[in-house]
Design a protein around this nucleic acid. Structure first.
Lengths: 116, 116
DNA sequence: CATGATCGATACGGAACCGAAACGGTTCCA
DNA sequence: TGGAACCGTTTCGGTTCCGTATCGATCATG
């Protein structure tokens, strides 16, 4: 058994969750930024720029720029890898963890309100 | 009964669907743009700039700019209201309908793959 | 008809984004 | 030890985004 969702429910869920975020004036992240943020918080570390670029199928500058913006928002942080100083390790922050957790709760709440 | 989803599942679902979109090089819409697009396709018409601005809790220029971009992508279209020529009616397009339907299918597919 | 209200669009300066190419720093290895 | 390979960042010109304020067009009202 798995999560059963009809297309119209999936779209309604996405709309309601997105609307809630926009109406509460959360940072207007792009789909790419959201994919990066959730990957950092859901996939096991370590996370590097190259690794994230490969995971998303985009170029490295895309990741660098997204990390710039999300770093300014304190959603992620960057640290040089001491073992291989070419690498940058992307890490979670307290603010980022709170953001992600709260977002998950919003989606759950909107899912529970969906008409069958 | 309603759609039951745990926070970790909600986050995984959002990640997997977003990742799939990014990897297939779909337009990198912002959360605001996605909320506008889904509202146009899910909520009953008519849709005006003012109405969408109120629904999202943002200013009118935000809607105008989003419609500019999504119009260039052929996801929505604009038409003057013949009854009240101050209004602009935002309408669906074939391409937009296909985009939304396909996106719904992606979310459904990712939901069905979620671990319980 | 004139005036005020309402509509969506536009101007502004500033910020973030794009893809492609090049860059400096680090590590690997012949 | 000197390339070659790899890393993340920066640069470039160009586009889109922001919020605030204002615009011209249109409609409703007196």
């Amino acid at each position: 058994m798995s999560i059963q969702l009809r297309p119209i429910q999936a779209l309604r869920l996405w709309q309601q969750a997105s609307l809630a975020e926009v109406r509460e004036h959360r940072p207007d992240l792009t789909e790419r930024q959201m994919a990066i943020l959730l990957t950092i918080y859901l996939d096991p570390p370590p996370h590097t720029v190259r690794g994230l670029a490969d995971r998303l199928g985009v170029t490295k500058p895309v990741i660098t720029r997204a990390l710039d913006t999300m770093g300014a928002l304190k959603l992620v942080s960057r640290h040089r890898d001491a073992r291989d100083r070419r690498n940058v390790l992307v890490k979670r922050t307290v603010e980022g963890a709170l953001f992600v957790e709260r977002f998950g709760d919003v989606v759950v709440a909107k899912a529970s309100e969906l008409p069958l």
